[in-house]
Design a binder for these strands. Structure first.
Lengths: 255, 255
DNA sequence: AAAATAGTGTCTATGAGACACTATAAA
DNA sequence: TTTATAGTGTCTCATAGACACTATTTT
């Protein structure tokens, strides 16, 4: 269809960068090792009609064409559910990729999203007709793989957004159980942020309980504790509804 | 064109929210009154071929269809140049609007951008065949106008992004001359941010010179001053290349 | 001299950062 | 008793915020 003499795009797609933080047990009464990972699919050799697939065999972000009855965000939601069985997560749009030559099939526009999934949610992931394999990779592994289209760029950008959001919003809560212990929060933050006030135990354990967006959990008027990662019972915390807002005009000054 | 059986969009457009801060003289040796404004166009009754225009007579963001040889960002750049004669500004993409029913003509996807223009750059703005009028409005004025399509929502979102960027990036420099006086910076910040550490003179004048991303201007080894807004000569400053990064895990704590 | 902007001096309270210390429970 | 995590005590230095004060120039 041409409107006002302008050529219309040949396709409108939605891609999703699915991140998770895996926890490897590190011995009893010790905090687990946490690593940021991204879920990628291996593109099938042929599609469900048997036609050879574009960029077959390469690894790619899950995603697909947007229907004309939905937004790209809605498409991202149901694609994610189709491909991983996961739903109900907060998907975030972070960019549009519309370079005319990014896809050899024509002028295909992609909206990129990211989402934080709990590790358990991805455990029962399944391949579909589009994907011959589906796996979690650390970021270092992912950028060494042969990636389809401009997905290398999209992953780079997604990482930048996730870092920004981890520093500026309460994004960390989506990587954590509802009630968590300070060392868990610290572990999540350190997979993405590099800051001495987080990595130094004394500083972090002193400051974190006073952050305006988390609160101690109580039960029957008692402070609720857990020793899931330590011999000493540790206080449980949860995020509050408070939305913090910071400003560069209110930060540390130069010497 | 249909690809893999999916319907393709009927149009791909690019809209631009053009912001400026106007300065009204407020008497000699006084800082001018500054106000945040947005530039809107009034949609013509008919297009350049004489056909009646959709949403005619309503106010709208400047923009238009993206060519198949360009990205929506490039489209935003040349649309802005066509409609205001302004080029070389840093345009920023902030959102995609692709709700199937946002435009009665069909499934038309819009990418939304914002840009900060200097007041002078918009002074020689001109109407085109698309626009019967083009004017600057304060935000309060703009949201009371009859606006085309979902542009009310886009303007709301743009405002939120500009506030965020003003607080978190050195965006303020695009509203200022290269060399500025502290009261000018304060005036710009106060059009968008509401913070006592900015509005309180003593606090702001003490802290601002030490911010890591601005530096005092010198000339022939002397501190360079200006009395454009005051009887007392005031120190001139400029932004440095430093990119500040703040974090909510490093902010003020609760009592 | 008066008025207006542009700062500075000084005080107090709070927080950051470093380092040593205590507390708790399992093995 | 040893060990590992989870904190706290205390010190020093830097900064935020408030308020009064000084400095510079025009009228």
């Amino acid at each position: 269809m041409k409107l006002n003499g302008f050529i219309t795009p040949d396709g409108y797609t939605s891609d999703i960068a699915v991140f998770t933080i895996t926890s490897e047990p590190n011995g009893d009464h010790k905090p687990p090792l946490k690593k940021l990972k991204i879920m990628l699919i291996k593109r099938s050799e042929s599609d469900h009609e048997g036609n050879p697939n574009m960029e077959a065999g390469k690894w790619a972000l899950p995603g697909g064409f947007v229907r004309s009855t939905e937004t790209s965000l809605q498409a991202a939601e149901h694609k994610l559910e189709e491909e991983t069985g996961v739903s109900g997560l907060r998907i975030k749009h972070f960019g549009t990729y519309d370079s005319p030559n990014r896809d050899k099939r024509g002028w295909i526009i992609s909206n990129a999203h990211y989402v934080i999934a709990k590790e358990e949610a991805l455990r029962n992931r399944k391949t579909t007709y589009d994907a011959s394999d589906i796996q979690l990779f650390t970021i270092n592994e992912a950028i060494c793989l042969p990636l389809a289209f401009d997905h290398r760029q999209i992953i780079d950008d997604a990482l930048w957004f996730i870092k920004k959001d981890m520093a500026l919003t309460t994004l960390a809560q989506h990587f954590l159980p509802e009630e968590f212990v300070l060392s868990e929060l610290q572990g999540v933050l350190l997979t993405i942020l590099d800051d001495s006030s987080i990595s130094t135990d004394a500083a972090f354990f002193r400051k974190a309980p006073k952050l305006p967006f988390i609160e101690a959990v109580t039960e029957n008027g008692q402070l609720k504790k857990s020793n899931r990662y330590s011999k000493t019972p540790a206080q449980l915390y949860r995020f509050t509804d408070f939305q913090p807002m910071v400003s560069i005009y209110n930060q540390k000054l130069k010497g």
